[in-house]
Simulated assay, not measured.
Amino acid sequence: MRYGLFFGDSITYGEYDGVFGGWVDILKRYALQQFHEGKNELILFNLGIGGETTDGLIKRIPHELNARNAADGNIVFIAYGANDLAAKEGEKLVNPERFKSNILTAVQHAKQFSRDIYLVSILPFSSKLDGVVSVTGKMRVSGDVVVYNQILKDIVIENSLTYIDFYAAFLHDKEILLSEDGVHPNEKGYGMMAEIAIPIIEKYL
């Protein structure tokens, strides 16, 4: 038996998807179905917390990993950045340097429990939000998504990890894959994320 641990924010949690519950929940159901059909058991944990940044991640990841440690090993997914890069009153919640440091800290914790670590790209957001202060008081700029994703890509290369590029998959059709708030995917978007991720978890079934 293996565990798959998905760390992230509200996009990992599956917010705004009242149909499927988000991409991780789709994967959970898929893995369970495959187990019932005779495949290896892979139990997936959705550890997404709405609004969380990497500052929150590094506080809880050691405890979460300790609490869920499968005999046959863990697979760790780390999906952050959409909140980190948001600016409030002119200041980013987590600047690029601290974002890099936090992700590296999380990766070092994960390496104690897993050899299979995936960093997940930040999604593009709707053009109508670019540089606009939202009702929550946060402002996001499209160029920052590219900068923060590049940080993730560099960490992946330097640490021999794997990068899941949802950003590229969404970019062309983002306006039809995102929900009304322009940040979270809609059912179609979450479904596409799950389709991209299924071949990854297939390797462990």
Rank of each mutant, 00 (worst) to 15 (best):
D116W: 12
G38P: 02
L93M: 15
I198R: 11
I157V: 15
D181Q: 11
G143I: 13
L129E: 06
Y16R: 13
L93A: 12
G8Q: 06
L5T: 07
V145F: 01
N69F: 08
N69K: 09
G137L: 11
H36W: 11
I11G: 02
G21E: 06
V120G: 00
A110D: 00
G21M: 06
R2Q: 09
M193W: 06
N95G: 12
L177S: 00
G51Y: 03
V120L: 10
R60K: 07
G189D: 01
E91R: 07
A79M: 08
H184C: 07
H109L: 08
L65H: 04
I43N: 01
F7G: 03
L119W: 01
F166N: 03
N74V: 04
D181S: 14
Y80P: 03
L171R: 15
N83M: 05
L93F: 15
V145I: 10
E180R: 08
L32E: 05
D55E: 11
T105F: 09
F113M: 10
P185T: 06
P96G: 12
V141Y: 06
L123C: 01
L65M: 03
A168T: 13
H109C: 11
K188P: 10
E202Y: 13
F77D: 00
L129H: 04
M139T: 12
E37Y: 15
N159M: 05
F170G: 00
D17I: 08
T54L: 14
E187N: 08
G18D: 07
A106Y: 03
A194M: 10
N46Q: 07
P62C: 09
E41F: 11
F45K: 08
V107N: 00
S160T: 13
I49W: 06
G4A: 15
I78M: 11
V19S: 07
N149L: 05
P199Y: 10
A194S: 11
A82S: 07
N95T: 08
M1W: 07
T105D: 05
V141F: 11
V145L: 04
N74T: 12
D130G: 09
P199E: 15
L104G: 05
S142I: 12
N186T: 03
R115Q: 14
L178K: 01
F7M: 09
S160W: 10
R2P: 14
S134P: 06
G90R: 04
F20C: 09
A71D: 14
S142K: 09
G22C: 03
K203V: 11
I198K: 08
V133Y: 05
D55K: 10
F45I: 07
Q33V: 11
L32K: 09
V120C: 15
K92G: 04
F6Y: 09
V183R: 00
I11E: 01
L161P: 02
A82N: 04
I201H: 03
R98F: 13
G131T: 13
E52W: 03
D55A: 14
A106W: 00
N83K: 04
A169L: 15
V147Q: 14
L57T: 01
G8N: 03
E175L: 05
A87M: 07
T162G: 05
D17E: 15
G51Q: 01
F35K: 12
D130H: 08
H63V: 07
G73T: 02
H184K: 09
V135R: 06
N102T: 04
K188Y: 08
E15M: 12
L119I: 06
Y148N: 02
G4T: 10
T54R: 04
Y3G: 01
D181C: 10
K203Y: 03
